[in-house]
Design a protein around this nucleic acid. Structure first.
Lengths: 255, 255
DNA sequence: GAGTACGCTGTACGCCGTACGGTGCACGCA
DNA sequence: TGCGTGCACCGTACGGCGTACAGCGTACTC
């Protein structure tokens, strides 16, 4: 039952929190405070600013005190991650407006979440955490797709695939946003600096297809690009569903 | 011309390499050696093993010597990234087998690349680099899609969206692979440890849709999931193309 | 042969995560 | 009531990191 395994410890922390002790002096902090402070710091100053020292300072305690609550920084990140994901009201209300609306909302909400907490795309590298909020998220997803003529297994793949797209798209978006910010230039200056190099490359004749591109080729906004990909994805799902409905009217007969 | 800007320096390094000097003693190393050694180290031992000290040791030089070639570790990562991307022979040969085949190959090659060099998904956080290989990659993409009834701008969005999907998918895949590896368990043990927690969650009644899922819901392989999402994406594109062809037969009339 | 530009590198600084062990609080029990 | 004990707090220290800096020696130009 009480497992030595660090994974078990991690899961316990996620699902049950810390057991509150009876014997010693009262803890100054609560676990949630630490997690919340971590999220705030990472949101406002970036993941690289989130050190245990900084965090402890912000909370007004000694650095090592944090380790009374959290076994390691990695585990803290897992807790932060699970705290930040989870269903939103608008996704709940979208469940009964058809699968397409539901998936669109899910994707947009996902994008918003990642954009608000960019560190989620850098931090969760260590482990995909099955915390209560992640599971609630999956639950909502599955219930929004209940009457689709897809096997459970396909729905799960669909969930993963859609999340993959959202995740990848935001990652690229953030990459460019960061690039400009970090170099201390505006987006425009940033491009202006790259242009001469690119134009020289185009002039070299090595890239004919690139050289022939229209002037506005690179003008797409991130919103636009995101929606284009999402539409393709949903259109593809739509035609898959139509095909299924054509060949069978009972979902479980689906190929 | 000679710009103080660090970005300019970075671009110069990418496109022109280091100017070879005439005056002083001969350099022990060449830039490409450093980049290659960096890639090898990151591939074999992970990005976290790639420190300037380790790298210098592997190359048989003092740590600070590396800074004669590369202004910072960040810049080194950019060089490594551009060195690793770029068109592959199989993608070249796929250009004349129709857009669907071409995009499928592109996506699979992309996945393979990311899986072979997992650090690309952790490292390029700092800047999207427009190096010669990245541009060659774009060139190939554009020339594979030449006769599609899409505007250049849409093609570019398409490239981004497809790459987003691939990138996100591999990232998730690696997440899980790493999770098992890092905890020192096999994939199976890893799941076995999570199961009790999940089953307790299911039994709580809070997750009816999850609880009702079939036994094989989570059995999809990564290959399977990746292909499912890719098919949806391509099917969506296919119907978009069909729609275009129905309403116009000149590409530039496309909505 | 002298001057000099430049490659190489040892040392050091200020960060990081965290192991360890001392200090003192507050509760359970005698 | 007094005490034993288990726990919270946290100062110190260790081994890593990226890299600034300055001294040293080389190999070219004139």
């Amino acid at each position: 039952m009480s497992d030595q395994n660090p994974l078990a410890k991690s899961l316990q922390l996620l699902w049950e929190g810390l057991p509150d002790p009876e014997k010693g002096p009262k803890p100054k902090l609560r676990l949630e405070q630490i997690v919340a402070a971590g999220i705030e710091l990472a949101d406002s100053e970036g993941l690289e600013a989130l050190s245990m020292r900084r965090l402890a300072q912000n909370l007004g305690v000694g650095t090592m005190s944090l380790y009374r609550y959290v076994p390691s920084k990695t585990e803290l990140l897992n807790l932060m991650l699970d705290a930040v994901v989870g269903p939103s009201p608008s996704r709940f209300s979208a469940t009964d407006r058809g699968w397409r609306e539901f998936l669109t909302t899910t994707a947009h909400e996902g994008r918003r979440l990642y954009l608000e907490h960019p560190w989620t795309l850098q931090a969760n590298w260590t482990r995909p955490v099955l915390g209560p909020n992640s599971v609630a998220d999956m639950e909502l997803f599955m219930s929004g797709l209940l009457d689709l003529p897809l096997k459970d297994r396909e729905k799960m793949s669909l969930a993963t695939a859609l999340d993959s797209y959202v995740l990848g798209a935001v990652r690229q978006e953030l990459l460019w946003l960061n690039a400009a910010a970090e170099s201390g230039m505006t987006d425009e200056e940033f491009w202006t600096h790259q242009l001469p190099t690119l134009e020289r490359a185009m002039a070299s004749g090595k890239f004919p297809a690139m050289a022939a591109l229209g002037d506005d080729t690179f003008d797409s906004s991130w919103d636009e690009t995101f929606d284009l990909g999402l539409q393709l994805f949903l259109d593809g799902l739509e035609s898959k569903i139509q095909r299924r409905k054509g060949t069978a009217n009972r979902p479980d007969q689906a190929r």
